[in-house]
Design a protein around this nucleic acid. Structure first.
Length: 761
DNA sequence: TGATGCTAACTTTTT
DNA sequence: GTTAGCATCA
């Protein structure tokens, strides 16, 4: 027996040794899924399959990198370099890059991230003279994204009666037009958004039989990780790619499906058996990760969901400790509690920093933990969140690099045409846009092509000359040299260097970090072990698809990790804190009115719990600051799904009064009254507030239940003082009141979920 | 045209 | 509590 096969259990071994034909591995949390996938790849290669013919698709770059590394280790040679392993998006981007001309795109097409895409949409909404309060770019982006993930192009979108009815019902009948415009504009800009990478890949395979044949032949063995998170477009692509050989192996766990908001459908995994003849199904049900207690809790939680593939996860691990449940007064106390608890665990049990993770539902929750960890001098690492690449200075820098590679890209061109200022302001930009539309040419053509009656001035001529100058470097110089040159000659780097404010220094450092990462890219050998394609074009192609979670070797650093539960999928930690377990937060307020949404939130909780190997804490706060004002929430309903026998009831948490509080599952749901003491800073802010009409809330101000409010009532607002509700609108979950205030505040529209109101009469 | 300061809108989750 | 976008002033 091969050494790499040692230590596998019966099911794992069966999965690894299955070679030809469709295979579905239902892999419960912690059941050794990655091990099976990587070992199977190693085994395929050992059985004579050429690495070049193996395609493995994952959802994160990190998972891909890990897979590659582990295969290499199992094989003990470098053949693994020839594997085609990557995320759906990066693998398809790479293929599309070489086939772009078939679809009428430049090879150096730009990849738009969500912000870029929304900005294009915003421009269209504006050009169509629509109200962007109603036609919100984010909403439209989601509609378009969903359409692409369902493989609906603009024409099909318009023709689909169900989709049209939805748009009519939401009073946004023109989305089809916007989608149509959006697709045209992206095409004209030589740009693809995230969803296009799937959508166009499908188009390529569907409409170009030679391309289909080529990739069917190339990828004779296909493995897909996290299959429960694939959407319809991905499903169809996989089906086409695998049709010739049907050597498709999917791995997934329906209980961990948490990406339906991105179009993922559990149906894909539930139906897999019916999609192919003779599907081999192997279930991995032994958990090697967690204690018996943690696993029991997880099983108990997921048992509340209706739709599942039946399976029972078990472990031979020790029972372990009971989990700990802590209630704190505020979100800040929650932060303090977690930091104190980590400190205590480290002293008592000698855990390293990297043994801890704090998991939350939304990125915005990270603040209180960052602050408290910093105060305790505990090193921490924030994973995900506002991406490095979303910072202004980085986006500007990248915008330059993008238009050098692809000057068609109007979005990025407009972004930097006047950065640093060079006398091409809003007026000029508008004039250029108008002229471009009249001539039906790109924005760049309008200022750069001397053969047409475009728009030119001394300022634009200088700009064009500069960009053209940069462009001449593309062929000969590598990404770093071009980028460095650009920074120098545009004055971008110098301007930041001269800015000695705190933010300015940070921005300068960020830009340096960007340059370092480009340098690193140019110096890292690619798959073939060579410094092949180290051009700027190839750098940009991958950069948009990188997320912070992939960024650096986050795992290596000895620091406490802070991340969303979504970002934690696939990871494991000895000690896990699941925080912010409150109604409206987790489960999210958006998910309370739909059974399937709620079940997804529950799966998310399941994912959170199953990250823990040894110890688990669940915390929640009585009240927390949201949008600057204090909000009270009930404890999450999910807490009551944790069987009390697994919860340590002698355990004590902390409160802001300094009195330890007994956390007791028996009285968790008694709403406790507590002193509403505004923090000192808040008080100081209020006292020094220069605003003449600032309202001091009554000392006994306690917000009332939103659902009891009605038109005609007199209310008190924390900031605007007393007023009368004129009318109510919106869904019960998100009611908006029009309120007439006194004290010169006038009539305001207030979202009742966020602003707190007290009924006066 | 460009910098500055204020207000409104904002929070799911990510490739 | 934060940030983007707008209005205002230089």
């Amino acid at each position: 027996m091969q050494t790499y096969l040692e230590g596998l259990n019966e099911q794992q071994l069966a999965a690894v040794q299955h070679i030809d034909g469709p295979l579905m591995i239902v892999a419960g949390a912690g059941s050794g899924k990655t091990k099976v996938l990587t070992t199977r790849i190693a085994h395929l290669m050992n059985s004579g399959v050429d690495a070049f013919n193996i395609l493995a698709l994952t959802f994160t770059n990190k998972a891909a990198a890990e897979m590659k590394e582990r295969v290499e280790k199992a094989l003990g040679n470098t053949e693994a370099r020839n594997l085609y392993i990557g995320t759906f998006h990066s693998v398809f981007a790479r293929i599309l890059r070489s086939e772009a001309n078939k679809l009428g795109y430049p090879n150096n097409f730009t990849i738009y991230d969500t912000d870029d895409a929304k900005s294009v949409i915003k421009g269209i909404v504006k050009d169509m003279n629509l109200d962007d309060k109603h036609y919100k770019p984010a909403y439209i982006y989601n509609r378009i994204s969903a359409a692409k993930n369902s493989l609906l192009d603009p024409a099909k979108y318009r023709a689909d009666t169900f989709v049209q009815e939805e748009d009519t019902r939401s009073h946004r009948p023109l989305i089809a037009d916007i989608y149509d415009q959006y697709a045209r504009r992206c095409f004209r800009n030589g740009a693809m958004d995230f969803d296009d990478l799937l959508f166009k890949m499908h188009t390529l395979l569907h409409e170009y039989p030679d391309a289909l044949a080529k990739y069917q032949g190339r990828f004779s063995y296909i493995l897909i990780d996290e299959y429960q998170d694939t959407n319809h477009a991905q499903y169809e692509i996989i089906k086409m790619l695998g049709a010739r050989n049907e050597n498709i192996c999917v791995v997934g766990d329906d209980a961990q499906s948490i990406y339906s908001f991105r179009g993922a459908t559990v149906q894909n995994i539930l139906q897999f058996k019916d999609d192919y003849d003779d599907v081999r199904v192997i279930k991995l049900e032994q958990n090697y990760r967690s204690t018996q207690t943690i696993l029991d809790i997880a099983n108990s939680i997921i048992g509340n969901n209706k739709n599942q593939i039946p399976k029972e996860l078990w472990t031979s691990n020790d029972e372990g400790e009971k989990i700990m449940l802590a209630r704190t007064m505020t979100d800040n106390d929650e932060g303090r509690f977690v930091a104190d608890s980590i400190k205590e665990q480290q002293m008592r049990n000698h855990y390293a920093n990297k043994d801890f993770v704090v998991l939350y539902r939304t990125n915005a929750q990270s603040r209180s933990f960052e602050e408290s960890l910093r105060r305790q001098n505990i090193p921490y690492k924030l994973v995900g969140g506002t991406s490095f690449y979303q910072r202004k200075e980085i986006k500007d820098y990248l915008a330059y690099l993008r238009i050098i590679v692809n000057p068609q890209d109007e979005e990025n061109l407009k972004r930097i045409i006047n950065v640093p200022t060079r006398g091409i302001g809003k007026t000029s930009i508008d004039k250029i846009s108008v002229r471009a539309n009249e001539l039906d040419v790109t924005f760049w053509e309008t200022i750069a092509n001397p053969d047409i009656e475009g728009f030119r001035s001394a300022n634009t001529d200088n700009f064009v000359m500069m960009i053209n100058n940069f462009r001449t470097m593309l062929e000969k110089e590598n990404a770093y040299d071009v980028a460095f040159f650009v920074g120098k000659h545009t004055g971008l780097v110098k301007d930041l260097y001269n800015d000695k404010s705190v933010e300015g220094i940070a921005r300068y450092e960020n830009v340096q970090e960007l340059l370092n990462s480009i340098k690193e890219f140019t110096e890292t050998p690619d798959e073939e072990g060579e410094l092949h394609d180290k051009t700027l074009g190839s750098y940009l192609q991958q950069i948009t698809l990188l997320t912070d979670a992939d960024q650096d070797k986050a795992e290596d650093a000895d620091a406490v990790k802070l991340m969303t539960i979504h970002a934690a999928k696939g990871l494991e930690f000895p000690c896990v804190y699941v925080v912010g377990m409150e109604e409206n937060l987790f489960p999210s307020a958006m998910s309370l009115y739909d059974r399937s949404d709620l079940e997804e939130e529950r799966r998310l909780f399941y994912v959170a719990v199953t990250r823990a190997k040894e110890k688990l804490w669940i915390t929640y706060a009585n009240s927390r600051y949201r949008f600057g004002s204090l909000v009270q929430n009930d404890p999450s309903r999910f807490i009551s799904e944790v069987p009390p026998r697994y919860v340590d009831t002698t355990f004590t948490g902390t409160s802001n009064t300094g009195t330890p509080q007994r956390s007791n599952t028996g009285n968790l749901f008694n709403k406790q009254s507590f002193d509403k003491v505004p923090s000192l800073k808040k008080l100081a802010d209020k006292l020094s507030a220069p605003k003449p009409a600032a309202h001091n809330p009554s000392p006994d101000f306690v917000p009332d239940d939103v659902s009891t409010m009605d038109a005609g009532m007199q209310v008190e607002h924390q900031k605007f003082g007393y007023g009368k509700i004129l009318s109510l609108e919106g869904a019960p979950a998100n009611r908006i009141a029009t309120i007439e205030f006194g004290g010169g505040h006038g009539t305001k529209k207030i979202m009742l979920n966020y602003a707190k109101l007290r009924i006066v009469g």
